[in-house]
Design a protein around this nucleic acid. Structure first.
Lengths: 405, 405
DNA sequence: CGCAAATAATTCAATCGCTGAACAAATAGC
DNA sequence: GCTATTTGTTCAGCGATTGAATTATTTGCG
């Protein structure tokens, strides 16, 4: 916590009030906010006025009806306020989307193509084309973009360099430098780079947090694709680790005397619950399926009662459960979200995961652990990326207000 | 983050300034603090005056010498300010200590006795005797006690009830209720209970954080005793999990097809790197050694070149390394501290732990993980308990100042 | 030795944002 | 149409920070 200057007071209260408006189930009145926060109605009015003139908040016309007295005017996040641009590079598709302050997806494009043969520079050039279309669409809807975030299936350092994205074949790719020619993804505003690069699993977890007001404050979001990544959300904020490389769950040993893994260990989770492992166990050659349909195909087979598929899923679920139990023991989380390719497979993965948790988590007897599929599907990472931009504005509105003024 | 009222400004700045004084390497001057925090020298002077009249800070007479100009007056945490009382119940000893604001241990008593035959009530009665002596000693030194914390080798819920302490044989022990007759451990002040009960591993980790200014902001502290517990410190704060039950590292599977464990799983870490497992592997019957000397005995044997001991330690270190690698992958930590019974064994445990980390942690190649023994020895938990009390004051001085006024 | 330069800390009027109470606005119920 | 009730705004007052000026204390230099 930095020092609190005179002006910080208003900055902090702008964040507090806007945060309450964003988190509220129904549009709160100024009086509600005053009661909730402990601030005076006078102060709340002044703060709200700043937020309204800054186009972050609008008054909801159909005010919620009460008993007697002057009717309250509900406050909601502005639909025409700043929006976030989300981008994603993945193994077999590119995606872009625009999410407004209220969390609505206002634009969404997916471009399917095998990215592996392309150089990183070429892939990014194609991505810029998508970004430009998204920008144009946003402008047509009167939405100013406040920033962008790019989701990548790999490890990203603070500078935005992709250190390693195995399934993409990327290694030490300096994304910001490669985008240098493509303003306005590169103009730095207020010290915030206009494009943040982050791990796909992290951003997908943020997407889940953003998807509904019912999201718990702390949970583990597991993205099951070729690799297995986890996004850790603690108290409503993404936990990134010392260098931003948290969530590497794929190499927790679940059968240490088991199959060798490319990481050098043995019996890693990825070798038992990764997409390739499940497909192989189910008797499906991986090569003839595009990655995005593999999970749905498996779900169809399981639905149809295929013994091979059911056995493969049970096996994978058990391995996943061993790893999840370890994480729950370590972090004492009460919710686990199955995302990415696991989402459609949740009906079959859930039982063995729960079984392992109740076997191995000492505290599960006192307070049960919830395991549920992700609310967002395969779009979680892009939507989460765009959401992370608007979320930053909600968490610190004075930055945007100063820029807009 | 709650709303910020007018008066919160000063409260926040008191915390900011006191925090800087506590964290500084050498006594900072008011001017230093102003430069660091961005506050005006005028404001810092006012804030510091509050801290000095509240007996939290004093001026260090031998001011650090500079070039020219009026010499600065260094500010340090007051040695005669509020102190914390730390208590510990463990399998074969009770302990109490008093730590002052500056982190110095001003009192320390250990009472050795096998606690397992005693009822929880009897054990706590003996503990109160220690606490009373510590109080008297503190009073004799002019130290007002600001609160107490009790370390227990088990799971504790929010109300202070020990839900399960297997090695102590405790189950659902309502510690605050059992201490009800023993004021002043029970009078609630400012909404803060005078006695906080917490897990031993958590408090030991806090002790490590408190032990030196060189402690990293985020680390994993592993307490190896009969069970294996971990304290997770993230950004200088203990991470407790949703219900305060984080850090159960003992049941991470390291040999899943291996030995059955009392938790119901197989091949848990505890069965390979727990004290009993190491002693058995080294050919030492456990029964004939008091728990506190087992580790030193092992260290002696290893020092003397005993093959059995060296092999046992290598085996345990490898198992520990597998689990630690999993945690490091998940949380992206850069420091692991070997505490409790592991501290004296660190020379032999470190190499296999590091080997497993470099094998299994993908990112270890870019930035190495430090593994080191704990700075505090077996006293870490008591000292950490007392430290947690003074730490709370440093984090929120206005609470103490209001009480003292 | 005396004086200028430099750095530390304090004083004080000005200012910014919150507070609390009074007031205006708008509606339901009688 | 009147009253009770609740919402939202206005305004004087106040607390905390600010910034410039002032005082305090030492080093360096002639």
């Amino acid at each position: 916590m930095g020092a609190v200057r005179q002006g910080s007071l208003r900055e902090l209260n702008l964040a507090v009030v806007l945060g309450r408006i964003a988190a509220a189930e129904r549009p709160p009145s100024r009086a509600d906010l005053a009661a909730e926060t402990g601030l005076t109605r006078a102060t709340v009015s002044a703060v709200v006025e700043d937020l309204i003139t800054g186009r972050l908040v609008t008054e909801a016309e159909p005010a919620p009806r009460a008993g007697a007295g002057r009717p309250a005017r509900g406050l909601v996040l502005a639909g025409d306020g700043p929006a976030g641009l989300g981008l994603e590079v993945n193994v077999d598709y590119l995606a872009a989307c625009v999410v407004d302050l209220a969390g609505r997806v206002r634009h969404h494009t997916v471009h399917r193509a095998d990215l592996r043969p392309l150089s990183p520079a070429d892939a990014l050039t194609r991505l810029v084309a998508l970004a430009v279309r998204a920008r144009t669409d946003a402008a047509a809807q009167g939405l100013p973009l406040a920033g962008a975030a790019l989701a990548v299936p790999g490890l990203v350092d603070d500078a935005g360099t992709v250190r390693l994205a195995p399934n993409l074949g990327w290694r030490d790719v300096p994304v910001p430098a490669l985008l240098a020619g493509h303003a306005p993804l590169t103009e730095r505003v207020d010290g915030v780079p206009p494009l943040v690069v982050d791990n796909e699993a992290n951003l997908a977890a943020l997407g889940e947090l953003h998807a509904g007001p019912a999201a718990p404050a702390s949970f583990l979001h597991i993205t099951g694709e070729v690799g297995i990544g986890a996004g850790i959300v603690l108290d409503g904020a993404l936990f990134r680790g010392t260098r931003g490389w948290s969530g590497e769950i794929g190499h927790i040993p679940v059968r240490p005397e088991g199959r060798p893994c490319r990481c050098g260990g043995r019996g890693c989770l990825e070798r038992y619950a990764g997409q390739e492992a499940i497909l192989a166990a189910a008797g499906l050659a991986e090569a003839d399926l595009p990655a995005d349909t593999a999970a749905t195909r498996l779900a169809e087979l399981a639905e149809a009662g295929s013994t091979a598929a059911l056995d493969a899923l049970h096996e994978a679920g058990t391995a996943l459960g061993v790893a999840v139990a370890a994480v729950v023991n370590l972090l004492d989380l009460d919710t686990v979200v199955l995302g990415g390719g696991y989402a459609p497979l949740a009906p079959w993965l859930r039982p063995p995961v729960l079984a392992e948790i109740s076997r191995r988590v000492l505290t599960a007897a006192w307070s049960p652990v919830t395991v549920r599929p992700a609310a967002l599907g395969a779009d979680a990472a892009v939507v989460g990326a765009a959401g992370s931009v608007v979320r930053r504005i909600i968490a610190w509105p004075s930055g945007w207000l100063a820029r807009a003024a």
